[in-house]
Structure formats: structure tokens, C-alpha cells
Design a protein around this nucleic acid. Structure first.
Length: 403
RNA sequence: GCGUAGGUGGUGGAGUGGUCAAUCACAAGAGACUGUAAAUCUCUCGACUUCGGUCUUCGAAGGUUCGAAUCCUUCCCUACGCA
């Protein structure tokens, strides 16, 4: 290994298949993996103070390049000392490259299309509309992506080099190569084109990062594997990017909802074993089990905070919607087995009241709970990897969770 | 007691002779959300329904009219003002 690498990864225990537990060391501390990464898109984990985030056991916060570039601006964040310091989070940090916004502000804008799709249920209209990008907020060309700000309509341009520059300013410990996150509705040929383009952008990201000695001395860069739902593309992407000198890998893009775990396994069987793998944007409990046993080390997801703010909470017995009438007089905790601040101090009835009266504390307690639920679940997975009880944990958990 | 303004769905409030089960908002009921365009969005919300419709409604009772929530009469109720 080269000296002076800003991050290092140490595998402590391997499972029978691809799964493993380890420690990822960053300039701002260690991340015990597998780990659930909290999302703080705009340099804030919505509704929570960093103290709350830390208290619930989160080890690392991931912010978003595009959002922080738009506001307050990456130079302000740089002058503040990086987004971690800016938001008063002292632990490890990551930034996403803006690649997801190519999708969310591009093809997906104004639609109900998510990055996960059941292939059988894919809407024909969405496929047919695929080439019609008019009216969307992101347009892709070989060199980069032109975005229209969702806030004021102003036009902005991202290229791999620009993303690296902005991410250097944002100052996270781990940054991502600029990629294109495709729609699951995209046809094979487009997935292939987008993947090839993402590979070229990966090389450019890497080159730009290495040219910036200061940034590459303190930030690790992860490449992002693409390829949609297709095995040959996923494997090719893993081979191509795996051969590049990244500090770790993100696995991004769209998946077949019913078979994501398998696709992750295709990729991780090829990626270099000694480097960390981050499954981007995944956070359903069953998906986390599948991803961990298939060799992923890190996950981030907006779901726990977003769905929490919208009233959906995880329990050992599945999800519940706190706005439902049946919780109005339910004086038990959200989950009696949960050790989070919300569960230790409040009842479902109280939280239901907060949601119904649109009180801001509802989103806070819900976010704490959902994040703690996932963080703790992944902590248990890590423990189970060391104990050799992963399968038991998975079966017991899912049996109850899925009822 | 007199005057004025009103009485429409759970609430507020449109409609002011035919296309009105009744705009809209809120409340309520349910659902969605996976690298945050999201403290957001979608659906339901008189009754019955084979989900195509059918029926009953606009304080009450009469009346005018081919036709009324809408016009007239009386009564009941509410708010404000004057006694």
C-alpha cells in the first residue's frame, strides 16, 4: 500500500460467502463495518442535531455535492472548514458526487419512477418517454451534465472535474466519482452507454483527484459501479472500475427490486476484496441483510429519515404508520425492544398526537427511532458476523419483521 | 319585541332558477416514499352499488314554475345592533 493514503480498510472477519466485518479508518475516525451511514444531504441530518445523530450510534454522515454547491455554495463550506465542521459533526464524513441528481432531476423528475423497479411492472409509457428529456432538469452529454436548479431554474454545469473540485471544497473524508445514475426504465442499450460514460467519468474523476495533491492527501475517492439490472453490465463495470486505483467502491444505479441482492453479489465477487464497498441509497432491513451477506460494507439511505418524518416507523414487527387512528390511544412505546431516546421516553399515543398536530418534534423522534433501528440492526449484523450467527439473526429478524 | 345578516356535507365556506351530491380548503380514513426537487405526495371522504350507476339532500312546512339550494309566504334557529 502506498503511504499517506487518507483512508484504510481492514477486514477483521469473513463470512462463508462474500460478507465481512471490518474497520474503515478515516482522518476523522474509524467506521466499524458493516455500517449504516446517515444521510445529511444539506449538511444536516434533517430534524436532528449532530449530538442526537451521534447518540443514536451513527458513525458517519453523508452530504450531497449538488445540494451544498447550490446552497450555501461549496466555497462557503470550504471556508467554514468543510461540511463536517460547518455542521458541527466531528466524525467521519462522505459526500455523494451529484450523480444521483442526474437521475432524480433528470429522467425521474416529475414522475413516480424510483431507482428500484419491479421489471414486470415497469410502465410502458416510462420506457417510451425515455428519450424525451424535454422539460426535465438535467441534460447529459459526454463531457458532463447541465442542471437547472430546482430552486430557481438557473443553469449549472457538472463535469467529473467540477464534481471533484466541489467535493474537495466540501472536504469530506470520502468522496465519490461523478457518475450517472440511470432510470430502471432505461433500455439495455442506454444502460450500456451510460455505464461506459460513467467509466470514462470515473477515470477523469480519479485523474482530477490525483492532480489535487492537497485533496487526495486527505480524501479517499470511491468509484461508482453502474450497469442497471443487467448481469453482464454489472460485471463489466466491476471489472473496469476494480482495475482503477480507487480507495473503495460505491454500487449505484437502478436495480430490479426483487433481485437487488443478487446483483450486488455479482459486483462484489469481482471488486477487489480489500477495498470497502458502499451500496448507495439502500436502507430497507431486508435489503441490508442481503447486501451485507453479499459483501457490502457501507449503506446510506434517506428512507429512515424521510419516511420517519412522513409518519412511518420501523418496529421489530414491521413498519407502522403513526398517523393511523389505532395509535391515538396506544400508550406503549413505538417498539418496546428499542433503546432509542424516543422509545425510552414517549408513547405511540404521544407521537401520534405530535404527527396529527404537525408538531416538529414528531419528525425528530421519528428520525431518531428509525435511524437507531437501522444502525442497531447493522450493529447486530456485525456482531453476528463475528459470532458466526448471521443466518440465525437474519431468519429471526425477517420472520418477525415481515410477519 | 324591532332591525340587519345568515341557516348548504365532520368544520369553514362556494353556488344564487336548469349541466349541483354539491367548487375549494381544513378535519378525518388509508397508502406511498430506498446515493432527499420530500415536516412531502397520492387516493377515499352523503347513502347504496353487480363500481356502470342508482337514490336522498341545501333549517322546517307550504307555494310559484316545465324545472328551485336558488323566487314568494309562514314558522324555527343563530350572530350582531337597537330597545
Amino acid at each position: 500500500m502506498k503511504r499517506g493514503k487518507p483512508i484504510s480498510f481492514n477486514i477483521e472477519k469473513k463470512m462463508a460467502g462474500l460478507g465481512r466485518a471490518g474497520v474503515l479508518t478515516t482522518p476523522h475516525g474509524e467506521i466499524k463495518t458493516p455500517a449504516f451511514v446517515t444521510v445529511g444531504t444539506k449538511a444536516t441530518v434533517k430534524a436532528l442535531t449532530p449530538e442526537m445523530v451521534s447518540a443514536l450510534g451513527a458513525q458517519v454522515v453523508l452530504a450531497n455535492t449538488y445540494h451544498l454547491y447550490l446552497e450555501p455554495g461549496d466555497e462557503i463550506v470550504r471556508d467554514a472548514g468543510g461540511f463536517g465542521k460547518f455542521m458541527n459533526w466531528h466524525g467521519p464524513t462522505m459526500t455523494d458526487s451529484g450523480g444521483f441528481q442526474v437521475f432524480s432531476l433528470g429522467m425521474a423528475f416529475g414522475t413516480k419512477v424510483g431507482k428500484l423497479a419491479k421489471v414486470g411492472e415497469m410502465i410502458e409509457g416510462e420506457k417510451n418517454d425515455f428519450e424525451d428529456k424535454a422539460g426535465k432538469l438535467a441534460k447529459i452529454d459526454e463531457d458532463g451534465v447541465t442542471f437547472k436548479s430546482y430552486k430557481d431554474g438557473s443553469e449549472h454545469r457538472f463535469t467529473p472535474e467540477r464534481s471533484m473540485e466541489i467535493q474537495a471544497n466540501l472536504g469530506a473524508d470520502i468522496i465519490f466519482a461523478f457518475d450517472e445514475c440511470t432510470s430502471p426504465a432505461a433500455p439495455y442499450q442506454y444502460q450500456q452507454e451510460a455505464m461506459d460514460r460513467t467509466h470514462r467519468w470515473a477515470k477523469r474523476s480519479l485523474d482530477a483527484h490525483h492532480l489535487n495533491k492537497e485533496a487526495s492527501g486527505k480524501q479517499g475517492l470511491f468509484g461508482v459501479v453502474q450497469g442497471g439490472r443487467h448481469r453482464d453490465l454489472r460485471e463489466e463495470s466491476a471489472r473496469v472500475l476494480g482495475a482503477m486505483d480507487f480507495d473503495g467502491y460505491g454500487i449505484g444505479g437502478s436495480f430490479d427490486k426483487d433481485d437487488m441482492t443478487t446483483a450486488v453479489g455479482w459486483v462484489n465477487a469481482i471488486l477487489p476484496e480489500n477495498k470497502p464497498r458502499h451500496l448507495l441509497g439502500i436502507g430497507e432491513p431486508e435489503d441490508l441483510f442481503g447486501a451485507v451477506e453479499n459483501g457490502c460494507d457501507l449503506f446510506d439511505c434517506v428512507a429512515p429519515t424521510r419516511t420517519g418524518r412522513n409518519g412511518t416507523l420501523h418496529t421489530r414487527d414491521g413498519k407502522i404508520n403513526m398517523r393511523n387512528a389505532k395509535f391515538v390511544r396506544d400508550f406503549t412505546p413505538i417498539d418496546s425492544e428499542c433503546d432509542c431516546y424516543g422509545c425510552k421516553n414517549y408513547t405511540r399515543a404521544y407521537i401520534a398526537h405530535l404527527f396529527r398536530s404537525d408538531e416538529i418534534l414528531a419528525g425528530t423522534l421519528a428520525s431518531i427511532h428509525n435511524l437507531r433501528f437501522l444502525v442497531q440492526l447493522v450493529e447486530k449484523m456485525r456482531e453476528a458476523i463475528f459470532n458466526g450467527t448471521f443466518e440465525v439473526l437474519k431468519e429471526d429478524f425477517l420472520k418477525r419483521y415481515k410477519k
